Simulated scan of single mutants.
Amino acid sequence: MPYTLSEVIVLFFTYSVVGWLWETVYCSIKDHQYAYRGFLFGPYCPVYGFAITTILITTYQVRDNIILLFIVGMIVASVFEYVASLFLEKVFHMKLWDYSDLWGNLQGRIAPQISLFWGIGVVILVRYIQPFIQRVINWEEGWTHGMLALLIVVGMGTDTVLTMISIKHFHMTTKQWDQRINAFQEQLRERVKKALPEERQLRRDQLEHWDQTFVDHLQKHPGTALSWNERRMIKSFPKMKVLDAKRFNKVKQHLSK
Rank of each mutant, 00 (worst) to 15 (best):
V91H: 08
K90H: 03
F117N: 11
T163F: 08
P197V: 10
L106I: 13
A183P: 01
L202D: 11
K194H: 13
M94R: 14
E89S: 08
G119N: 02
G119S: 01
Y99K: 04
N138Y: 14
H171E: 15
R109V: 12
W177R: 05
L102H: 13
T160M: 12
R203Y: 15
G142C: 09
L125Y: 00
I181Y: 00
V154P: 07
G155T: 11
T174R: 02
Q179D: 11
T174H: 04
G104P: 06
H171P: 05
K168T: 08
Q185R: 12
S166T: 12
I124S: 02
M147E: 10
G104E: 11
F170Q: 13
K175E: 07
F92L: 07
V136H: 07
I165K: 08
A111T: 04
L96V: 07
H169W: 04
I124E: 01
S166M: 05
L125S: 04
V154F: 12
T158K: 13
N105F: 10
R109M: 04
Q201C: 06
E199P: 10
R204G: 07
H169M: 10
W139P: 01
F170H: 12
I152C: 09
W97I: 06
I137S: 01
D178L: 05
K194P: 07
H169T: 13
G108P: 08
L196Q: 09
A195I: 15
T160E: 07
V123E: 00
W103G: 02
I133R: 01
K168D: 10
Q176L: 15
W103M: 05
F170M: 12
W143I: 02
I137G: 01
L96K: 03
P112N: 10
E190H: 13
L106R: 09
V192D: 03
A111Y: 06
F92K: 04
M156W: 03
H169K: 13
V126N: 12
R203A: 15
T160R: 03
W143G: 03
H145D: 07
A195K: 14
V161C: 05
I133M: 06
R200C: 14
F132C: 04
I124T: 02
R189Y: 15
G146C: 05
L162Q: 03
S166G: 03
S100N: 13
Y128C: 06
V126I: 15
E89Q: 11
N182K: 14
N182M: 11
K168V: 07
R135L: 11
T158M: 12
L150W: 11
Q179E: 11
P112C: 09
I152P: 11
Q187S: 15
G146F: 04
V122L: 00
L162E: 02
Q185C: 02
M164E: 10
